[in-house]
Design a protein around this nucleic acid. Structure first.
Length: 347
DNA sequence: AATTCGGGGAT
DNA sequence: ATCCCAGAATT
C-alpha cells in the first residue's frame, strides 16, 4: 500500500485546466482579464458570496443583477432602508443573510472599505470561514482557502475519506490550506469550485475529463460517486398553520415578522403559529365571516408546512397591520407569496 | 457538536 | 422522496 498521495502538482494542473474551462459568471474577472491586471470589485464578490451561500447560481444570479443595479456600491447599500433590502431579498431564502448583509455593509462603510484579510473579514456579520477565505483570495489575492461544498466533495474523493464527515471536513480544510499557491490564490479558489461544479459533480462525476483523475484515490477505488460519505438526515416532519387574507377596500393587511427566527424581518400574512405537532388552536385575528380559499404546501429545511388560507373582507382596518394596496404587494417570502396568490390569482 | 434557517432544481 | 447548493449563527 503506497503512502499518502502527493498533491504537489495539483495547483499547477488545476490552474492550467481553469485557464481553459473557467465558468463565465457576472461577478467574476476571467483568468485572461486578471492576467491583464484587472481586479474584481470587492463589493460584487462579497455580495455574490453571501447570496450564493447554500444557494444555486441559477437562483441567485437574478438577485445579484437586481441588487447591483439598485445598489451599485456598498455605500449605496449601507444607506438603504432595511425594508427595501428585505423586500429585494424576498424569495432568496435564509433571510438572516439579508439582515447581516445590511449590518455588514454599514460596518464596511464605517471602516472606510472592505478589510482585506481572512482574519478581519471573518469578524464581519454574515461572513464565516468559507466566505472570508473566498473574499480574501478572490478579491484581494490573499493566500487563503475557500472550502465550500464543492471543494469538500472534490477532496473527499481525492483522499477517499471514509471517516466521520465532521472530522473529515477538518482534514480537508487543512489539506486545502496547505495547497493554496502563492501566485493566483483567488484563481485557485475559483478553479476548485468550478471543478466540483462541472466535473466532480455529486452524481456521475466525469472522471474521464478530470485534470486530477490520476491523483484521485476514489477514482482508483472505482466508485468516486460514493463520496463524500455524509450522515443521513432526519426525516422532515409536517406542521400545520393558518394564514389570513384580510381585505378592506383594495388593500390587504400584512405584518412585519420580528427579526429573529424563521422568516425573520420579512413581510408576511398574519396567521397562527405552526406548532410542532397537532393543529394550531389560535383564534382568527378578528371576528369575521372567514372563508377557506385553499391550502398551501411548502417545504422548509426542517419541516413541511400545510398552510390553510382563509379570507375575509372587513369594513374597518385593523390599526396594527401594514395595509398595502393589492397591486403593490411585494417582498413576501415564498410561502406567503403562494398563499396570497390563492386570494389574488390574477395578481 | 447539533440545531436553526429557504427555496428551488436535479435525480 | 432525497440530495444538493460559493454556509453562518446560535444553542
Amino acid at each position: 500500500m503506497p503512502g499518502k498521495r502527493s498533491f504537489k502538482e495539483l495547483p499547477a494542473r488545476l490552474l492550467a485546466w481553469y485557464d481553459k474551462h473557467a465558468r463565465d459568471l457576472p461577478w467574476r474577472v476571467s483568468p485572461a482579464d486578471r492576467a491583464l491586471g484587472k481586479r474584481p470589485d470587492p463589493y460584487r464578490i462579497w455580495l455574490s458570496e453571501i447570496m450564493l451561500q447554500q444557494t444555486t447560481i441559477p437562483h441567485g444570479t437574478p438577485y445579484f443583477h437586481a441588487f447591483t443595479q439598485r445598489w451599485p456600491t456598498v455605500e449605496a447599500l449601507a444607506n438603504s432602508r432595511d425594508e427595501e433590502v428585505m423586500t429585494a431579498w424576498a424569495g432568496l431564502g435564509y433571510y438572516a443573510r439579508a439582515r447581516n448583509l445590511l449590518k455588514c455593509a454599514r460596518e464596511v462603510v464605517a471602516l472606510g472599505g472592505f478589510p482585506e484579510t481572512e482574519k478581519t473579514l471573518v469578524k464581519l456579520p454574515g461572513i464565516g470561514p468559507y466566505t472570508a477565505g473566498a473574499i480574501a483570495a478572490i478579491a484581494f489575492d490573499q493566500q487563503a482557502a475557500a472550502v465550500d461544498g464543492n471543494v469538500d466533495r472534490v477532496f473527499a474523493r481525492l483522499l477517499a475519506l471514509k471517516g466521520e464527515w465532521a472530522e473529515e471536513k477538518k482534514v480537508i480544510a487543512a489539506e486545502v490550506r496547505a495547497l493554496v499557491p502563492e501566485k493566483r490564490p483567488g484563481v485557485f479558489a475559483e478553479a476548485l469550485m468550478d471543478l466540483g461544479a462541472t466535473i466532480c459533480t455529486p452524481t456521475r462525476p466525469n472522471c474521464l475529463i478530470c485534470p486530477l483523475a490520476d491523483m484521485c484515490a476514489a477514482r482508483a477505488e472505482g466508485e468516486p460517486d460514493t463520496y463524500p460519505r455524509k450522515p443521513a438526515k432526519a426525516a422532515t416532519k409536517v406542521r400545520h398553520g393558518v394564514a389570513y387574507v384580510l381585505l378592506e377596500g383594495d388593500e390587504v393587511m400584512l405584518v412585519r415578522r420580528p427579526d429573529k427566527g424563521l422568516l425573520g424581518g420579512m413581510l408576511a400574512l398574519p396567521g397562527t403559529e405552526w406548532p410542532k405537532s397537532g393543529m394550531p388552536d389560535e383564534a382568527p385575528p378578528v371576528e369575521a365571516n372567514w372563508e377557506t380559499i385553499g391550502e398551501v404546501r411548502h417545504v422548509f429545511t426542517h419541516f413541511a408546512l400545510i398552510l390553510t388560507v382563509k379570507q375575509a373582507r372587513l369594513t374597518a382596518k385593523r390599526p396594527d397591520g401594514v395595509w398595502t394596496p393589492i397591486r403593490d404587494v411585494e417582498g413576501l417570502p415564498s410561502v406567503f407569496a403562494k398563499a396570497f396568490l390563492l386570494a389574488l390569482p390574477e395578481a
